[in-house]
Design a protein around this nucleic acid. Structure first.
Length: 592
RNA sequence: GGUCUAGUAGCUCAGCUGGAUAGAGCAACGGCCUUCUAAGCCGUAGGUCUCAGGUUCGAAUCCUGACUAGAUCACCA
């Protein structure tokens, strides 16, 4: 549509004004609310070609286009704005096209994109922050795929490093061989407890040492627990059998726990990487880098890269004791992935606290291979805060993922019981729908916010089921499904022809116009890596439809053609809601 | 202190690649269920788009500076 208008505008400028077009800056927008028209061209930027007043230019172009473009019913000029109204026929054809064309057309620019998200640390059960990460990664993957790309979802599990040794040490010392089975606890929760326990005991030791006159920094290094932890790390890297088997066992507990949470969230991966198996590659790269002179070695044997020329700092890649750091592992993993999959793009979904890290990673990769470096993209998202501020594990304000999901399900159960709408459904059916609603509310609440913005998670609001929420959209879908079911019972088929003479209401055109935008919205959302664009789009579509639903009856419409039109329109709205919500990882029920 | 990100209604957020009168939801107040699902719809009220300059026919949007908040600058990850 817009392309056609732009084409005619260009033609018009050339024909009427004999203008030479050098910079085509035409914006075609949807006409503003309250003004007669469907599409609007802003003519201010065009006066440099016409050398006439904006209003005269708009009028000239209006006449020109109206003569040539059959789909335009009328036009009007207000100040520098040229508004076009499309014909009824045009809109009815749009609906037909939507009905026929069940597969959306692809973007064209198909790429192989690898996207890493979740990236949990085996010491910490998943919490609210991870939920944002997971939902974002999952949703962006779906959107990129819908935009025609080949997407590989990967997870990188941070299963080694000094912090992992801490929980191992604590469990060995005080765990008394407890297991998830013996304590009847999710594996990730059990391990998480020992990590917390380590921290507690470690702090006690520091305090004691400080009392004996040590400085705090010194105490942190000299505390027996820290020394033991470092020893474990070295043994681990040396492949010590006992250490490795404890490590493998505890990790398997954690993976079971994570798997359960991922399942509840409906999230999956195509490939899982473990840092324990990629960090050595990082070490190799460090030696290559040293040979090539990319890195330098300090007298104490630690290895560094100097990025001061690029406005960053010196960054460590290998500790003086030869063990690896975060950056080393990430470097190894990145190269492994490029070598194995050769993606056109590698997206990391990681919180904005790591902006600096990824900046450095990109630069270091660039020293090896400029091409790889240019393909790395950090989808940086803002932190999730609570109304009372940051989540702090020490103060116990961390919102656990499993608890949160549980609570959402309880609330959804309560609300649906109160409404009584699902009383005649079977137990299992009811349970299925309640889960959909609970997760829909949670997911939508988080995903609707622009990823790069820091967001406030208000527990009270998140369980709200009215207004701009997941359940509101799900409800709209369920109502449409109900109508379509009834239509079927009444034996009304909605595949019939609609005469182009059918008179459409403004609100119907508005809905139709929104429906035709869907593909474009997906592409925009994919380009900007922002699922929030889709969330907001579906919300406004649902809102438009609800207004229409309230003001006009569908099934009681006497005119057969209008009835036909409304049924098909509703059907398309339901389809778009379903498809759109799917891109957010949210299911929609047919009854609720 | 350096760097990055953000600041829009009481609260949570859209709008930001410049266009007409800055939009939703929540909360508040007032209406609408013998009528396709009221998890809905309609209305009232609520704004110096942090501030000050600049660019432009036109700025919430772009630029500069200030202020405020967050992140980061580790032999943590």
């Amino acid at each position: 549509m817009e392309k056609n208008i732009i084409k005619y505008i260009k033609e018009g400028l050339e024909t009427i004004y004999k203008a030479e077009i050098y910079d085509l800056n035409i914006s075609v927008e949807k006409t503003r609310e309250g003004i007669d028209g469907d599409y609007t061209v802003v003519v201010f930027p065009l006066v440099k070609y016409s050398k006439k007043k904006p209003e005269d230019t708009a009028r000239d172009l209006g006449v020109f286009i109206k003569q040539r473009f059959d789909d335009i019913a009328s036009y009007n000029v207000i100040k520098g704005f040229l508004n076009f109204k499309m014909t009824q026929e045009y809109w009815i054809n749009r609906l037909k096209k939507l009905t026929l064309n069940n597969d959306r057309q692809k973007n064209g620019g198909e790429q192989k994109i690898m996207i890493e998200f979740s990236s949990p640390n085996t010491n910490k059960p998943l919490h609210l922050g991870h939920i944002r990460n997971n939902l974002l990664g999952d949703s962006v993957s779906r959107i990129l795929k819908a935009a025609g790309n080949d997407v590989i979802k990967v997870n990188l599990i941070n299963d080694r490093g000094i912090h992992i040794c801490k929980s191992m040490l604590a469990w060995t010392k005080w765990g008394e061989n407890s297991t998830p089975d013996s304590t009847n606890q999710k594996g990730d929760k059990l391990v998480g407890e020992y990590y917390v326990l380590f921290d507690k005991k470690y702090k006690e030791q520091i305090a004691e040492l400080v009392n004996t006159g040590m400085t705090e920094d010194e105490a942190k290094e000299k505390a027996p627990l820290m020394l033991e932890t470092r020893e474990i790390l070295q043994k681990w890297e040396a492949g010590d059998k006992d250490i490795r088997s404890t490590w493998a066992m505890m990790n398997s507990w954690v993976y079971d726990g994570f798997e359960q949470t991922y399942n509840k969230l409906g999230i999956s991966f195509d490939k899982i990487y473990y840092e324990s198996s990629t960090y050595l590659l990082g070490k190799e790269l460090v030696s290559t880098g040293l040979e090539k002179g990319i890195f330098t070695k300090d007298p104490d044997n630690s290895v560094w890269i100097d990025l001061t020329e690029e406005g960053l700092d010196r960054k460590i890649l290998l500790r003086s004791d030869g063990t690896t750091v975060y950056m080393t592992q990430d470097l190894g993993t990145a190269f492994e992935r490029f070598d194995e999959f050769n993606p056109d793009k590698m997206i990391y979904v990681v919180g904005n606290e790591q902006d600096y890290h990824f900046n450095v990673l990109k630069k270091i990769v660039g020293r090896f291979d400029a091409d790889y470096s240019s393909k790395i993209e950090h989808l940086s998202y803002g932190m999730v805060e609570l109304p009372e501020g940051k989540m702090k594990s020490r103060e116990g304000t961390v919102v656990d993922a499993d608890d949160l999901i549980e609570e959402m399900i309880l609330t959804a159960t309560k609300i649906s019981e109160e409404s009584g709408k699902m009383d005649d459904l079977s137990e299992s059916e009811r349970e299925r729908i309640i889960k959909m609603i609970a997760l829909g509310a949670l997911k939508y609440y988080i995903i609707k916010v622009d990823p790069k913005k820091q967001m406030t998670f208000n527990p009270k609001e998140s369980i709200d089921f009215t207004g701009n929420t997941g359940p509101f959209i799900q409800y709209t879908h369920a109502r449409i499904c109900s109508i379509l079911r009834k239509a079927e019972q009444m034996n009304i088929k909605f595949i019939g022809k609609i005469s182009t003479e059918t008179q459409l209401l403004n609100c119907e055109i508005k809905i139709l116009s929104a429906l035709t935008e869907f593909d474009e919205i997906i592409n925009e959302s994919a380009n900007r890596l922002d699922p929030g664009i889709i969330a907001n789009y579906i919300f406004s579509l649902a809102k438009e439809f609800n207004q229409f639903y309230h003001d006009h009856s569908i099934l009681k419409e006497k005119n057969a053609e209008i009835l036909q039109f409304r049924l098909q329109l509703s059907h398309q709205v339901a389809r778009t809601i379903k498809n759109g919500m799917e891109l957010l990882g949210i299911e929609v029920p047919e009854k609720m």
